[in-house]
Amino acid sequence: MATTYFTEDHEWLRVEGGVATVGITDYAQEQLGDLVFVELPEVGKALSKGDAAVVVESVKAASDVYAPADGEITEVNDKLSSDPALVNSSAAGDGWLWKMKLADESQLEGLMDEAGYKAMIG
């Protein structure tokens, strides 16, 4: 059973068996507007919590997406190379960004659940 967490930086993490799938929230994609490019990292890259992991670019601007926890990238969503707009159309689904093996699941404590995140964005 996967558990979904949310960060203050408008990311979601779906965690199952020590692996987190990470994306940005629907609220975040709406704020960014139409994405035209997603810069994906290399599989195998080690991330520390707070590192800029992915860059999403809209027509207007580039924005960093930060690693929500320590870990190693196990997979990236290659579909975004040809279709970055998947993040707009399906932020919580097909528009996921990367998967990572978590180094320390205790770092997830303190992240929000969906109700908490919805309360934050108001």
Binding site: G33, D34, V36, S58, V59, K60
Partner: peptide, 12 residues
Amino acid sequence: PITYPLGVLKEH
């Protein structure tokens, strides 16, 4: 106004 609900791509 920076964008409207149509979004920058469709507005363009």
